[in-house]
Amino acid sequence: MKFRSVVAMVVALVASSMMSTAALAETFTFTAIPDADESRLNARFGKVADYLSEQLGVDVKYIPVKSYPAAITAFRNDQVQLAWFGGLSGVQARELVEGSEAIAQGYEDQFFKTYIIAHSSTGIEAADALQDSVKGKTFTFGSKGSTSGRLMPEFFIREHFEAAPDEIFSRVGFSGDHSRTIAQVQSGVFDLGAVNYSVWDTELKEGKIDTDKVKVIWTTPTYPDYQWTIRGDVDARYGEGFKQKVTDALLNMKDEDLLASFPRASFVPASNDDYAPIEATGKAIGLLD
């Protein structure tokens, strides 16, 4: 019994992989991880796929991923040709795939910022600069590869104190996610945290945050963040001018329902050069070689 099942399985695996390879050859695939609300990605981004399909005249498919590295891998392995990356993951991805380009960013991403938040028990008040009283407290970043949850706040903290986070704080954690950073600081698990400003503002509006327990104590200077990055070989594969068509479709996305998935007010043009500061910061911190 076992042996026959194994043979059947191998045959089916090979057959199904060949079939899907054939079917996917002409499909344009993209992925996106929004910075807030990752629920029901398929349903929400399925609509974006429908929109793009209509605009581009090819089949467009969305595949959900869990993390920035997974998105980068999919992009590098050509399983997706277009991706909505964070600042740092975009730089990492473009380094791995020659000819790939940042083509559009969110309106908000031109001047993105990070909030440093603190639990009320620390007694730290909001100020224009990070105070020395944060030293010796516990601190959590978001995801390790996040621009707004890790890279930029770490950069500004290093710049201010001229020391690495684990020298400044008694313990440094990585919550893995902006919402969870808020939850952990609000619960006093960590004294301080670094959180994407738009996630904070959204959760504050939704009443998920108890401002008696957690508040913003410092706002970083602005930096560029999320962007759409496309592989360099799409023109050759989907027809001349395809990259421009994708760019136009993104910039012309006006439907608020679609934009809310990211969530951004609109998309504006972007280029690889816009992310030079992120690259420099990544190198300074040692996250990029």
């Binding site: 199904s16 899907s20 390879t21 392995n77 399983q79």
Partner: peptide, 12 residues
Amino acid sequence: AIFLLPEMPPVN
């Protein structure tokens, strides 16, 4: 179970 597996993206 074989038929229920998610589809395979192309592998380069």
